[in-house]
Design a protein around this nucleic acid. Sequence first.
RNA 1: UCCGGAGUAGCUCAAUGGCAGAGCAAUCGGCUGUUAACCGAUGGGUUGCAGGUUCGAGCCCUGCCUCCGGAGCCA
Length: 434
Amino acid sequence: MSLPHVWINTLKDHVGAEVEVRGWRNHLRSSGKLHFLEVRDGTGVVQSVFFKGGLSPEIFERAGGVPQEASVAVRGTVSQNPKQPGVFELQAKEIDVIGVPVGEYPISPKEHGVEFLMDNRHLWLRSSRQNAILKVRATIVRAVRDFFDGRDFTLVDAPIFTPNACEGTSTLFSTDYHGDKAYLTQSGQLYMEAAAAAVGKAYCFGPTFRAEKSKTRRHLAEFWMVEPEVAFMDLEGDMKLAEDFLSFIVARVLESRKEEMKILERDTTKLEKVVGPFPRITYHEAIEILQQNGHPEAKVGDDFGGDEETVISNKFDRPVIVHRYPMDLKAFYFKRDPNDPSLALNMDVLAPEGYGEIIGGGQREDDLAKLEAAIDVHKLPREAFGWYLDLRRYGSFPHAGFGLGIERTVAWTCGLHHVRETIPFARMLNRLSP
RNA sequence: UCCGGAGUAGCUCAAUGGCAGAGCAAUCGGCUGUUAACCGAUGGGUUGCAGGUUCGAGCCCUGCCUCCGGAGCCA
């Protein structure tokens, strides 16, 4: 019997029809003359019902013996679940076992430890929570592209191999490049500055790499970053762009991933508040907040750790923009505030609920002499930045941009404890496999 | 790299220095509407590795390994 193959999330359109569902065995419950066999196909889960009285003994026995995670094809009639309105099931007539597991499936339906799950990440991805996270991530990636493409930005891909560091080599992975040393990129920003002069509004989106030996819930060795860079935009414009961007992403997730938010048990009322304008405070105001909220030792010149970021972000119900940090804390390429040259025209966006910095950016130094001086102050090799300095030699222009970390954004929107669940196959200190 | 915690059955965890156990998973049986189904039975162990103390070590001591949490740095 040949029947149309339908995906489980479309079963509601086939009530009363005979169809074939293909997928993997989730749970199997039996009660003598009935088998309830759950099939999962990536779009959803459906319960197929095998009633002994209406089937040949061979088919009934086969259905009752399907091991966990065997792949199957079940044919039957789509019907309303008698106990759960709005839920559909399959009154099964036939079942084929397509792929028989060679042994016991490692992930049983009870709780597991982190190490075990990460070792079995390739199988863990099949679970409903991980499925939901993958879908939210894909939606966020799509929202990122739609946001910039819809605002006339041009996607300009930055290289992965880079010849030298833009912020020191200690955090870079090095590799052999035909006898020379090359590094895996930790940012496409410098290339986006070149691109901004070519296309006006540029962005890149790809993996970046950090060799820092960080072991926290916010760090990965390989993560995805989107970096817009806009010609003739100042810090104010940069903050507005970041604000519109984050609001757009969150709104997209809320409108198109309701079901996944439910599976993840995410309190979406907190996300619904993420609309502009975001509060904007200066670095100095942030220090004052810390001093008044359990960190009396905080002083100008300190950078913020995870705890401090949480204290600051908890004062607000939406992302907060902290701008104008001391220049000493920031990378060489930031432009100094003309009103106080000790400050950088930079900004960080801290996500609510303790998710920390998800955006960092600002206005770039566009004066050749000042940029050269900054490179010297940071003890960086000036000759390595020849092409970058050319951007200031030939029609220098004010410009600004930022970088957004996709994994931290996914962790925040999904309400996850750790970024390792936000990327399909995490690369961390002590984790290169699977 | 530093500080703290943990390694016992396939998984999650118990076990006063004195017989190494439970739940889940697996296997077998029972049950006509189950929802991480339920009920009964069976099999399952180099207690992370190496050494030491002791009549006796999963437990105490030393070293090492691995993982988890945090710090620094960052998105």
